[in-house]
């Protein structure tokens, strides 16, 4: 016997002056390996044809589908209903980002700003000849950069962050991770002083209160707190 699920969705169209946020309930049968992406697809195709949510890869790779599921920010496509004891779920848009409609939020625009702010690109001053054998990189250093490069900019760390609630302009764990990533990259020539310029304030590395929300929820299981603590130590040495 499959379980009956109740799905409550916070719906709101901020562009429609006559609309007010409301919770709408839907009922459906649970099927094996049912992800919340499939739940939403079912509701859209059968019950609520204009339900807005963001899904691209539906495989936990692209970071589009973060939302609040029963109080915790998660990737909808990677979260399965059968991993919960509950049969009733409440879905709300990811906090901390501009709401587009229903469960769709504009993480993209926020991430764009964050990337520009921490200058998330390799800084270098030597031109390269692409016909020549590439520069050798220590295999461990390459692995370390890869580890830090796995962030998919889903925004879950931002939505889980106590500091972000109080400081609108906090760069979030994701922003600090970017700095850690380029700092570890042998191709990037920036000095710690230059990184300090970017994040050496309360909206950056000194804003983090180590509440751990980010790391607990990060779907890529990135070592956020460890890296942030290390970065803070380095930045304190300069400050």
């Amino acid at each position: 016997m499959s379980r009956k699920l109740t799905i409550n969705i916070l719906e709101y169209d901020p562009q429609d002056p006559s609309d007010r946020p409301k919770i709408v309930s839907f009922k459906m049968d649970e099927t094996p390996s049912l992800s919340f992406y499939l739940v939403l697809k079912y509701i859209k195709e059968h019950l609520e044809p204009d339900l807005a949510y963001d899904v691209v890869c539906r495989a936990g790779i692209c970071g589009s589908c973060a939302m609040i599921i029963n109080g915790t920010p998660r990737l909808a496509c990677k979260t399965l209903t059968n991993n919960f004891k509950e049969t009733e779920f409440t879905l709300a848009p990811l906090a901390g980002f501009a709401l587009i409609k229903d469960l769709s939020v504009n993480t993209g625009i926020w991430m764009k700003g964050m990337n520009k702010r921490v200058e998330a690109w390799v800084h270098q001053n030597t031109p390269m000849d692409i016909s020549k054998i590439e520069r050798k990189i220590d295999p461990d250093a390459a692995d370390e950069v890869f580890e830090l490069d796995r962030c998919i900019e889903c925004g879950i760390c931002v939505a889980s962050c106590g500091t972000k609630l109080m400081r609108e302009d906090f760069v979030g764990a994701v922003g600090l991770m970017k700095v850690a990533r380029f700092r570890a990259d042998p191709h990037d020539i920036r000095s710690d002083e230059e990184f300090y310029e970017l994040i050496g304030d309360d909206n950056g590395i000194f804003g983090c209160m180590s509440l751990m929300g980010c790391e607990d929820n990060c779907p890529k299981e990135l070592p956020l707190q460890n890296k942030i603590a290390y970065l803070r130590k380095k930045m304190v040495e300069l400050g």
């Binding site: 270098q124 390269m128 590439e134 520069r135 390459a142 890869f146 191709h187």
Partner: peptide, 18 residues
């Protein structure tokens, strides 16, 4: 080969030979 070397220069952390 030029594409991959350019990408390395732009920071793709290609897995390296040990």
């Amino acid at each position: 080969p030029k594409a991959i070397r350019e990408l390395a220069h732009w920071g793709v952390p290609w897995t390296r030979i040990r």
